[in-house]
Design a protein around this nucleic acid. Structure first.
Length: 256
DNA sequence: GTTGTTACCTGTACGC
DNA sequence: TGCGTACAGGTAACAA
């Protein structure tokens, strides 16, 4: 998401929306019928990321986009099969494409509370604050990392990768972890996110940035989608379970 | 309040 | 080749 925002920023900030067209699909659920009219003529002032939400600030409100699993915000491409929203700018076109339709677009005068009420950014929160937030939760530590109210922006890949690096089993109850082990998770989470951003993200199947380019952090995944393959530390096969309704990958030997 | 379950969708990979 | 099944970067709406 950070990669998407970084590539989108130079392409859309300062541009003016001339026209917006919306499809009829569920990604637009709740979008008022006059939204296209409201957007027309407005200049893009800035674009920022709040966890996994993308907030595009306009002159009279915010366009908030969530890409879900398969959503893409693209510039400089032809209309795609699953383009649910098409923004014609005074220089170029931006479109929102999402085959699986788990993404969302909304528009309002202010950022919705759902977005402002999220936990702190994982790369900005202090160790003390992170420890307090994690240790007050009773659920498995993997579910806690995925909980956007605890910290915002950690997804399934980075939760698995951070727990592997920290040497912590995903199913361990967060509240039962020592301060030292939470500190290891904190450090690992920061490393994984920083390295992933440097690699322009993880392209597991179809993820691309706003220019249609793939990231490369998937080449550095040590457990995610490596079920049955040898652990890079000990050679034992990586195990996959379902935890918090998500595929969860870990090394049963290295993670305690 | 927290925590867990289910629903929402299409596309792809894989086994038969 | 065709068909069924499992799985996929996520959140929100419920139920308990």
């Amino acid at each position: 998401m950070e990669t998407v925002v970084r590539t989108l920023r130079p392409a859309i900030v300062g541009r003016r929306i001339l026209n917006a067209e919306f499809g009829q699909l569920r990604v637009l659920r709740g979008l008022p019928a006059d939204t296209a009219q409201a957007l027309a003529g407005q200049k893009v002032l800035s674009i920022d990321r709040h966890g996994k939400f993308i907030a595009i600030r306009l002159e009279r409100g915010f366009l908030v986009v969530h890409l879900g699993m398969t959503g893409k915000l693209l510039v400089g491409v032809e209309r795609t099969k699953w383009a649910h929203a098409i923004f014609t700018l005074d220089d170029g076109v931006m479109l929102f494409d999402d085959p699986r339709q788990f993404g969302r677009i909304e528009y309002g005068a202010e950022l919705p509370e759902r977005v402002t009420a999220l936990g702190p950014e994982p790369l900005e929160v202090s160790l003390e604050e992170f420890t307090r937030r994690v240790k007050e939760r009773g659920s498995p530590v993997k579910a806690v990392l995925l909980n956007q109210a605890v910290v915002r922006g950690v997804g399934n890949i980075y939760a698995d990768e951070a727990l592997f690096r920290a040497g912590v089993k995903p199913m361990r109850a967060a509240a039962s972890l020592s301060k030292e082990r939470v500190a290891k998770i904190f450090q690992a989470m920061r490393e994984v996110l920083t390295e992933a951003i440097d690699s322009r993200g993880s392209s597991v199947s179809n993820y691309v940035d706003a220019e249609g380019r793939k990231g490369s952090f998937q080449d550095s995944h040590r457990v995610y989608q490596r079920t049955g393959e040898p652990c890079v530390n000990c050679g034992q096969p990586i195990k996959r379970i379902v935890l918090a309704q998500r595929g969860t990958h870990y090394c049963p030997n290295c993670q305690k």
